[in-house]
């Protein structure tokens, strides 16, 4: 079973996401920014990528764009964690190739149910 990649520059959010997914039986890899995530994604094919929007070095939108250009990630679900529930960020994410988004704040149950929707 391939793994989920959780990308967030905030340690607490990343910990929460990773812990929640692990406790739901998923195998999780973590990255603190887009650049590192992209590096990991080149080495391993993840079945789903969950990424924050605002991050240093490489933001979530750029990460999604870069991932979609990799043959392995052409159809992989790429979800963005966003606090901006406004339409522009979503539009930007969609244009970059994001599958969908999860609006912060969310609780562990919402996270699991969204992930299950996509790959359950």
């Amino acid at each position: 079973m391939s793994r989920i990649l959780a990308v967030d520059d905030s340690n607490s959010m990343r910990e929460m996401v990773a812990f929640t997914l692990r406790s739901a039986g998923f195998d999780v890899a973590e990255a603190p920014d887009g650049a590192e995530a992209l590096e990991l994604a080149r080495k391993e094919k993840f079945r789903l990528v969950l990424c924050d929007v605002n991050m240093p070095r490489m933001d979530g939108i750029s990460l999604v764009k870069a991932l979609r250009e990799l043959p392995d990630y052409k159809f992989t679900p790429l979800l963005m964690l966003t606090t901006e529930s406004g339409p522009e960020k979503k539009q930007e994410g969609r244009a970059a190739g994001a599958t969908g988004w999860l609006v912060k704040p969310f609780n562990p149950e919402q996270l699991i149910s969204t992930i299950n929707k996509v790959i359950g």
Partner: peptide, 8 residues
Amino acid sequence: GTAAPVRV
């Protein structure tokens, strides 16, 4: 196609 796990 699963790759070898990479630890962060």
